[in-house]
C-alpha cells in the first residue's frame, strides 16, 4: 500500500527490539478512517444536492417577477409569494432586533460577570435545556404570553408577536454562541486590561468583545437562519396562508414563507406543488443572502481587529 521501506534506516539501534517497525497496520487504520469520513461527507452532500436539484427543476420555470410580486390566489398560476416574503423579512427583522441584544447581553453577563457560582451553573444547565425544547412549545408560550397577555402591546396575532416568539426560540442558541466566542478570547487580554486599572466592563467593551464579535455574529446568523425556517410556532401564533395584502408590524394577518410552502404542498393540485418548489427557492435565496451578509460582516470585523 505504501511505497516506503521501513528498513530504510540501518538497524543499528537496540530499540528495534522494543518498537515494532511494521507500520502497515497503522496505515491501514488511517485509510479506513479517511474513507469512512469521506463517505459521511459525500452522503450528506448527495442527499442535499438531490433535494436542491429536484426543487430547482420543479420551481425554476415558475419563478418569475409575477410570482414574487403577487398575492395568494385560488388559481395556482396567479398565486404569488409577496405577502409571505414580506412577512418573513419582517419576522427576521423583529427577531434579530430582540434576540441579538438580549442574547448577547445574557452571554456577556454569564461569561464575564456572573462568576462560577450555583446560580450561574443552574442558569447554564437551563439554557442548555431550553435550546432543546421543541419549537411548538415556544409557539404555545408565545400564544399565551405575547398574543394573549401582551395583547395591548403586540396587537395579538401579529408579526410582532411571532417575531418575539422566534426571538425566544433562538435566544439560547445566541447565548451559547456568545459564550463560546467570549471563551475563545485569551484571558491574558482580560488580565492586561484589568492590570491597567480598567473596570471589567471597560475591558470587555474595548478588548474582549471586538475579538469575540465575528464569532458572535456567525452564531447569531445561524440562529436566525433557523428562525426563518420555523413553521410550527408560527402556526400556533396564527400565521395565515391567505393574506392578500402586505403585512405590517402590528397588523393582524401575516404570513411567512415556510407557512405558505407548507400550505401549497398540502394541496391536491400539482400546480400548487410547483408553486411550493418556487417558494422553497425564494426561501433559500433569503437564506443565502443572510449567510453572505454574515460572511461579509465577519470578514470586515476580522480585518478591523488586526
Amino acid at each position: 500500500m505504501t511505497a516506503t521501506d521501513p528498513n530504510a534506516f540501518s538497524q543499528s539501534s537496540s530499540a528495534e527490539q522494543h518498537f515494532s517497525s511494521d507500520l502497515s497496520g497503522r496505515y491501514r487504520l488511517d485509510n479506513i478512517f479517511r474513507i469512512a469520513s469521506w463517505v459521511a461527507t459525500v452522503t450528506a452532500l448527495v442527499v442535499l444536492a438531490f433535494l436542491l436539484i429536484d426543487v430547482l427543476i420543479d420551481g425554476i420555470p415558475r419563478l418569475d417577477w409575477q410570482f414574487i410580486t403577487s398575492f395568494p390566489s385560488r388559481s395556482a398560476e396567479r398565486a404569488g409569494i409577496l405577502a409571505p416574503l414580506v412577512g418573513t423579512i419582517w419576522l427576521l427583522f423583529v427577531t434579530a432586533l430582540f434576540a441579538f441584544p438580549i442574547g448577547v447581553g445574557a452571554g456577556i453577563f454569564l461569561e464575564e460577570f456572573a462568576g462560577d457560582n450555583l446560580f450561574a451553573r443552574i442558569l447554564e444547565v437551563n439554557i442548555g435545556n431550553l435550546a432543546a425544547v421543541p419549537s411548538i412549545i415556544y409557539g404555545l408560550l408565545g400564544l399565551a404570553v405575547f398574543v394573549r397577555v401582551f395583547l395591548p402591546i403586540t396587537g395579538g396575532r401579529t408579526v410582532f408577536s411571532a417575531g418575539l416568539t422566534l426571538a425566544l426560540l433562538i435566544l439560547p442558541v445566541i447565548i451559547v454562541a456568545t459564550r463560546e466566542a467570549l471563551r475563545a478570547v485569551p484571558s491574558s487580554l482580560r488580565q492586561a486590561g484589568m492590570a491597567l486599572g480598567a473596570t471589567r466592563w471597560q475591558t470587555v467593551r474595548e478588548h474582549v468583545l471586538p475579538q469575540a464579535f465575528p464569532g458572535i455574529l456567525t452564531g447569531t446568523i445561524l440562529a436566525l437562519s433557523r428562525a426563518i425556517g420555523e413553521t410550527a410556532p408560527l402556526i400556533v401564533i396564527g400565521a395565515q396562508t391567505f393574506v392578500p395584502f402586505v403585512p405590517s408590524f402590528r397588523g393582524t394577518g401575516f404570513s411567512a414563507l415556510p407557512i405558505q410552502i407548507f400550505n401549497w404542498v398540502g394541496r391536491p393540485q400539482a400546480e400548487f406543488h410547483v408553486n411550493a418548489a418556487a417558494g422553497i427557492i425564494v426561501l433559500m435565496i433569503v437564506l443565502v443572502a443572510m449567510n453572505a451578509t454574515a460572511i461579509y460582516l465577519r470578514n470586515r470585523f476580522q480585518a478591523e481587529k488586526m
Binding site: L189, G193, L196, G197, T199, P210, Q211, K305, M306
Partner: peptide, 26 residues
C-alpha cells in the same frame, strides 16, 4: 501598581492605542 506578564500580551489594536487605552480609561 502596573504589571507586565509572562507572555507579551499587547491589545490587538494599534501601537498608539495600546498606550492610549490605559491613559484614557483613567
Amino acid at each position: 501598581i502596573g504589571m507586565v506578564f509572562q507572555k507579551p500580551n499587547p491589545f490587538p489594536k494599534s501601537i498608539y492605542e495600546n498606550i492610549a487605552f490605559g491613559a484614557r480609561i483613567n
